[in-house]
Design a protein around this nucleic acid. Structure first.
Length: 888
RNA sequence: GCGGACGUGGCGGAAUGGUAGACGCCGGGGACUUAAAAUCCCCUGAGCUUUGCUCGUGCGGGUUCAAGUCCCGCCGUCCGCACCA
């Protein structure tokens, strides 16, 4: 063996061997037990990010480990290749989105291959290719035929910067999730998927997902937002018309003191026709922002319509009707009854407009009718001041009033979901064309399956904003498949989340003439372990669950849940480096310069996360260009521009000391990024893989450091030297080392299966340390060989290189080391001796020593006798093989 | 406001109610070397009157022979959701 392990030649050599032998190709006809290990496929943005490396390394270790355990493993990779960055590149650089995307895929694939991931590249797919999206179109038509796709005119979230429609989930605090632009409402004819049909199923299914993080299940549960209550009608006094309200607190109906309707409620609109003041009020409501900060401070505003309604339990009891800014049109019925005593918003509103607040649920002993606190009571209790319901519990009253409403015909129980149908239309070029044709005579006509795929035209122009498909001279002009007359193609494309809602099925089975075949799905699904970022907790993961259930409902597949286990890994973080200079006045162009940020505030303001990617101006304050204002300009420096010495950091170019900031998520705007390729080049694939697994638990953030990666590279070399000491001819037994080896095998396996990679890494260090200290023996050689196998899933190149000289075949095809559990049993144990619960001594005794002997040995200890100070022992607790505690 | 997670050395973090700080990083000392790098060895929670003792897992209580771990009440940090009736 050579003195040093040289990744620069070994990595590529083994990668070629695996590739030539198709080592990681999943065999559909294998009779081994199967395991589908999947990491969320990347968007081909250009270069892989260190977060990808962490994600894929985890999946890779698991996949390689499963192979060693005798599983037939499916571990594929593909590209989530549609999306707006490609169009942005087209607009900015004059390139074609397809060319840009495919080039990025080629680059990123090469990067992934340099990391030595055990992937089945024969199943590689890119969602932007007709071979993929054509099948997606077919599935969309199937869902349409099943009534799960519909089109409707609706107000949509319009992003004026990206010039597209956004799903509710893509609107964050009233802004587009990508552009950060304020979202406007627009009316457009849109395609929708009926995810609400599955609201209950998707909710109930969560309880079967034992392998999912509680956090993600809770987030989805909240997103689906099930609530149960009463829908009922309040009659407009003196008419037969009524206002429908929805409430989850029908038990508080005796405490009602007003009705409030949303500003965009139809009744409000009709009343406004003849009331300019109301028109103005409605306009004010619509102007109101929706960000968290605005909502917190927003005053409850109302407009008294002068109308009144009859209380359903007493026609003579009239309640005023307000238009109110806090009532939402798109939840429930867009109208509520206000019970100020038991709802904070209603209470705020009542206090402002001088409306009564009547207690109907007792708060402890307090049964007074007049509610005088400024904090609504929402807890449990007995009903008071509530006529025939007085004395009931909240739950009893709810049931009673719902029953009564049903009998008397003014209301009924209703379950509401916050979940809305999924709008999938996007006015964009770079996506899956929606396979429909608009015919003046026949209406909306599906494209016949025989005519699929509907292929995107290549010759498109990006010089003007908007959808190039609309402007294309010929593409949309087709004959109607139904009547043969002149017709036009749908020019909207599908939301890219549709692409990622079924790709895991295509990995399992990819016939040419169908999206997948059922046998292939049955063979591999569900995914045994899915790994990705927490940012997909709602969107992608809910949509994928929905598609799987929808395809199951229409008989295409037999699985209901796509991902048996989900793991959300933490981010890779890095400290930030900043230097500050003061300037006046402010040249406005600087706000465009990457890596610069303004603030008139204190330096730590710099660390507040930006609200959108690419935004570089922070602080949020408007700066007046008056002469006495000094602007603090904070410039971020990248790690490569900084030299660290004795805990301090200096700019290499100037030698100036720079400020070391918080450890935060790597982002371009903070310049605290490292390039995986440069790391691989300098230290080798195994070192960066090892770093990704070391120290931090995988669900937590991992702080990147130069010292850390150097330590990993050193350990690679240390293992290499250790493996070089393997001596097949060595003789002699080392029982202690044998046990150490076997316990390391067992513990490492447990850790990997629990995805506790940081712990597995610690076991391996431990075993390596023990081998280092041990004298040569047959046991030591066996331990070295075992260590090699334990390390193989994590550092596959080093492992192959060493295995070549001591093993047979490829280590990637070797079995996980076995051991005799009987040998794990120690024959001696160290027992803790406590006096009054404090450790005073430890003794080494034969395993299984009887209690009385343990007690005797404990009492014989000098240290114990000193600690007892002559006091009599009152009680003795003996835990066999663990400890003795003497209570004096 | 609601929901969730977390809080342990200088740092990342270990620890089925049973020897707190495994393992790694940083740091210190030494060996080797003309020297450096690499490598190897030792030390490395704090304090003290140092064969050893005391304190120590955010804070305050409690349960227990025994608490980082369980219970109650606080404080703090992070994440998600949010005028959802």
């Amino acid at each position: 063996m050579t003195e040093r392990f040289d990744p620069s030649q070994a990595d590529g050599r083994w990668q070629r061997v695996w590739d030539e032998r198709q080592t990681f190709r999943a065999d559909d006809s294998s009779d081994k037990p199967r395991s589908f290990v999947l990491e969320m496929f990347p968007y081909p943005s250009g270069r892989i990010h260190i977060g990808h490396v962490r994600n894929y390394t985890m999946g890779d270790v698991l996949a390689r480990y499963k192979r060693m355990q005798g599983f037939e493993v499916l571990h594929p990779m593909g590209w989530d290749a549609f999306g707006m960055p490609a169009e942005n590149a087209a607009m900015e650089q004059g390139v074609h989105p397809g060319g840009w995307t495919r080039q990025n895929i080629a680059n990123m694939k090469a990067q992934l291959q340099r990391l030595g991931f055990a992937l089945d590249w024969s199943r590689e797919l890119a969602t932007c290719e007709p071979e993929y999206y054509g099948h997606e179109q077919a599935l969309f038509l199937d869902l349409y035929a099943a009534g799960l796709v519909y089109r409707k005119e609706s107000a949509v979230n319009w992003d004026p910067v990206d010039m597209t429609v956004l799903a509710n989930e893509q609107v964050i605090d009233g802004r587009g999730w990508r552009s950060g632009a304020l979202v406007e409402k627009r009316k457009l004819s849109q395609w929708f998927l009926k995810i609400t049909d599955f609201a209950e199923e998707l909710l109930e299914g969560l309880s079967t997902l034992d392998g999912w993080p509680e956090k993600v299940r809770t987030m989805q549960e909240n997103w689906i937002g099930k609530s149960q209550g009463l829908r009922c009608t309040f009659k407009l006094a003196g008419t037969q018309d009524g206002i429908e309200v929805y409430t989850t607190r029908p038990d508080t109906i005796f405490g009602a003191s007003f009705l409030a309707i949303a500003a965009d409620h139809p009744l409000a609109a009709s009343l406004a026709a003849n009331a300019p003041e109301l028109q103005e009020f409605i306009a004010i409501c619509k102007r109101g922002g929706t960000t968290a900060a605005e909502l917190e401070t927003a005053e409850k505003l109302g407009f008294n319509t002068g109308l009144s309604v009859e209380h359903p339990l007493d026609p003579d009891w009239h309640l005023p009707v307000y238009v109110a800014n806090f009532v939402l049109m798109d939840y429930g019925t867009g109208a509520v009854f206000g019970c100020p005593a038991h709802d904070q918003r209603d209470l705020d509103f009542a206090r402002k407009y001088g409306l009564p607040a009547h207690r109907v649920v007792a708060d402890g002993d307090n049964e007074a009718l007049e509610y005088d606190s400024d904090e609504a009571y929402t807890g449990p209790g007995r009903l008071v001041n509530s006529g025939w319901m007085t004395g009931m519990s909240v739950a009893e009253a709810k049931a009673a009033i719902i029953a009564k409403a049903g009998q008397d015909g003014w209301g009924e129980a209703e379950t509401q979901y916050r979940l809305r149908d999924w709008g999938v239309s996007r006015q964009r070029y770079w996506g899956t064309p929606i396979p429909f044709i608009h015919c003046e005579t026949c209406g909306v006509v599906p494209v016949p399956k025989a005519d699929l795929p509907v292929v995107l035209p290549e010759d498109v122009d990006f010089q003007t904003p908007g959808n190039p498909l609309v402007r294309h001279p010929t593409w949309k002009h087709v004959d109607c498949p139904s009547c043969g007359g002149k017709a036009e193609r749908e020019t909207d494309t599908l939301d890219t989340f549709v692409n990622s809602s079924w790709y895991f099925l295509r990995f399992a089975s990819q016939p040419e003439d169908a999206p997948f075949d059922e046998a292939g799905i049955a063979r591999w699904l569900p995914v045994e372990q899915y790994i990705g970022g927490i940012e997909h907790a709602i969107l992608h993961l809910l949509y994928a669950r929905f598609w799987t259930r929808a395809l199951e409902r229409i008989g295409k597949i037999k699985v209901k849940e796509p991902f048996a286990s989900l793991f959300t890994q933490g981010m890779v973080t890095h400290e930030t480096y900043t230097k500050q200079t003061t300037h006046k006045p402010v040249p406005s162009v600087l706000s465009e310069v990457e890596g610069l940020s303004f603030s008139s505030a204190t330096p730590e303001r710099q660390n507040s996360p930006s609200t959108s990617s690419g935004q570089t101006v922070e602080g949020g304050e408007t700066i007046n260009a008056s002469e006495d204002v000094t602007i603090v300009l904070t410039q971020f420096l990248s790690p490569s521009e900084v030299r660290k010495e004795g805990g301090k950091a200096f700019e290499i170019a100037t030698g100036e000391e720079v400020e070391v900031g918080r450890v935060i998520k790597m982002s371009k705007s903070k310049k605290n990024v490292v390039d995986p390729d440069a790391i691989v080049e300098k230290y080798g694939a195994d070192a960066i893989r090892w770093f990704m697994l070391s120290d931090s638990p995988p669900e937590r953030d991992l702080p990147w450091s130069e010292a850390g990666i150097e330590g990993c590279a050193r350990f690679v070399q240390r293992l290499w030297r250790l493996f070089g000491q393997y001596d097949a001819a060595a003789t002699g037994e080392d029982r202690a080392l044998d046990r150490k080896r076997d316990s390391a095998v067992a513990a490492t396996a447990d850790d990997i299966e629990a995805l506790g990679f940081n712990k597995a890494v610690a076991r391996i260090y431990d075993l390596a340390n023990a081998i280092d200290k041990a004298a040569p023996s047959a046991s030591r050689s066996a331990a070295i060989r075992t260590l090699l196998l334990l390390v193989a899933p994590m550092m596959p190149h080093l492992a192959e290189e060493a295995w070549a000289s001591i093993g047979e075949g490829l280590i990637a095809e070797a079995d996980w080391p076995s051991f005799d559990p009987a040998l794990l049993v120690e024959d001696e144990v160290t027992v803790a001796i406590q006096v009054m619960g404090k450790l005073r001594d430890t003794i080494t005794v034969a395993k299984g020593l009887p209690k009385d002997q343990m007690e005797a040995l404990a009492l014989a200890s000098d240290k114990v006798q000193r600690a007892l100070e002559g006091k009599p022992v009152r009680k003795v607790i003996v835990v066999p093989d663990r400890l003795v505690n003497l209570v004096a």
